[in-house]
Nucleic acid binder design. Structure first.
Lengths: 237, 237
DNA sequence: CCAAAAGTGTTCTTGTTACACCCATGT
DNA sequence: ACATGGGTGTAACAAGAACACTTTTGG
C-alpha cells in the first residue's frame, strides 16, 4: 500500500514526531465469567460482522470516540447493548496487541473481565449468549483463548485475598454458599469453621434480617456485602 | 499532516460496521522506577515533540506498526532508544484512556512499569533522564501523575509477596541489602531474623562464592536470584 | 579493645487446622 | 426420630514477632 510506503519514508525523516505510523485498530473485549454448578464458564456471542462472522467469540466492540469517556465506558456499553447487563462487576484485565491477532492489521484490544451473578444469568441468556466452560470452550477466533485464560488466572489470583468471588453470587447469600463459591473458583477445599471465623474477623459482611430455607435443610442466615466495591485482605481466605 | 488526513478519509470508506469511528491515538508510556537512598523515584524526560514540548514527562512513544511485535516490544524499544536501557524488568501496568487526556484527541496509552537496578542508573543519566521522588514530582502533563501513582501502587502491592523488589538491586546483593529494599519499597520495618528464615525457606536465592566488604563492617555473603524471572510467594515476606 | 553490621537461637504470641459437638428444620 | 446441612467451641499445631546473643571485620 502507498500508505505503508509513505510511512516508511516519512520515518526516516521523522525522528521528531513519529506520528507518521498508521494508527492501530483499538477495540475492547469482555470476558464475562459465571459460575455454573459444575465449573466456571465464559460468555460468548456469535459474531455479527467480519472477520470471523458467525463464529463464537468474546463480546467486544470499537471505542466510540464521540461518546465513551474511556475504555471502561466502552466495556460497560458493550455489556449493556450486547449482553443486556448493567451494574455487574467489571475491571480492566490487560491489553493484548500485535500485528497478527486481527486479520485487518496491527491491533490492540483492551480486555476487561466481568462477573455475572447468578440472578442475572437469565438476562444474558435472553441475548443469546452461550456459556462454555473456561477449560473446554472450542477454538476461539483472534487471541481470545489467551484472553480467557488470563481472565481466569486473574480471578483465581485475586480471589483468595479479596471479596471478588462474592460478585458471582446474588445480592444476598448464606455463608455456605459463599464458601462454596470460593471453593469452586479456587479449586480448593476450605475448612468451614475457619472460613466463618475469618469472614467474621474481616467484617466484610452484614446479616440481613430474614432467612432462606428453600435450598437448605436448616434455614441459614442471609448476608450481604457490607461494601459493594471490591475489598482486598492481606491474608488469604 | 497529509498522512493523518488520508487515514481519516480512508476510514470513512473502509467499514461495514461501527469501525466508522476515527481510530483513537495509541501510545505506550513507561514508568521507570529506581530506589534512591531516600525514596522511590520515577524517571522523566524533557519532551522533544508537541504537545507539552520541553516539559518533563514519562518516556513514551507511538507503536511502530511495521516493527513492533506488540506493545511490550514498543515499551522495550522506548527503554532502549530513549532511556539507554536493555534487559531491565518491564511489565504491563494498565491502559489509560479518554477524550481529554491528550489535547490531540481521544487517546489510549498502554502503560508499562520498569525497574532500574542500581548498577544501570548511570546509563539512564547519560540519556539526560531526571529522577524525581514518586511523591513530589511537580505537575506532569497528560494523566502521567495518575499513571505514576498506579505504578507505585502496583510495586507496593506485588512487592510483599514476590521477588519484584530484588529487580531494583544489581545482580548480586547481601541479605541486608535485600531486606533494606523491601523495607524502603513497602515502607515497613522487617524483622531481620524472620526475613532471613523466610528467604531461606522460599529458596529464591543462591549464594555467590565471594564476599563484599566494601560497603559493610563485617563482610557479608553475596547472593543472586536463583531465577531471573519474577517469582510469587503465597505468604507475605 | 571497641564499634558496627552479619548472622543464629530461643521464647512468646498469634493464626491455622482439625475435629467434635449441638441446633433447627423437612420428611 | 432421623437425616441434613447450619453453626459453635476447643485443643493441637505451625507460623510469625521480639529480642538476646555470638561472630567477624575495620579502626
Amino acid at each position: 500500500m502507498q500508505i505503508a510506503f509513505f510511512n516508511r519514508i516519512k520515518h526516516h525523516f521523522s525522528m521528531v514526531n513519529d506520528d507518521a505510523y498508521e494508527r492501530p485498530i483499538l477495540t475492547v473485549d469482555i470476558v464475562l465469567l459465571m459460575l455454573a454448578p459444575d465449573t466456571l464458564r465464559v460468555g460468548l456471542l456469535k459474531r455479527a460482522a467480519a472477520p470471523f462472522v458467525g463464529e463464537l467469540a468474546l463480546p467486544g466492540g470499537y471505542v466510540h470516540t464521540d461518546g465513551d469517556a474511556d475504555t471502561l465506558a466502552t466495556a460497560r456499553r458493550v455489556l449493556k447493548v450486547k449482553c443486556g447487563l448493567s451494574r455487574v462487576f467489571c475491571e480492566q484485565l490487560q491489553t493484548f496487541s500485535g500485528p497478527k491477532r486481527d486479520p485487518r492489521g496491527w491491533s490492540a484490544t483492551v480486555a476487561y473481565y466481568a462477573l455475572l451473578p447468578e440472578h442475572l444469568a437469565s438476562a444474558a441468556l435472553r441475548q443469546e449468549m452461550v456459556f462454555k466452560p473456561v477449560s473446554g470452550h472450542g477454538r476461539l477466533p483472534f487471541d481470545h483463548a489467551k484472553i480467557v485464560a488470563a481472565a481466569v488466572e486473574r480471578l483465581r489470583g485475586k480471589g483468595s485475598y479479596s471479596t471478588l468471588p462474592a460478585f458471582l453470587l446474588g445480592p444476598t447469600f448464606t455463608l455456605s454458599e459463599l464458601r462454596s463459591v470460593y471453593e469452586r473458583v479456587m479449586e480448593t477445599q476450605l475448612n468451614d469453621s475457619a472460613f466463618r471465623r475469618k469472614i467474621d474477623e474481616l467484617r466484610i459482611l452484614e446479616p440481613v434480617e430474614g432467612e432462606v430455607s428453600k435450598r437448605t435443610a436448616r434455614p441459614a442466615q442471609l448476608f450481604r456485602l457490607r461494601d459493594e466495591t471490591l475489598q482486598a485482605f492481606d491474608r488469604k481466605i
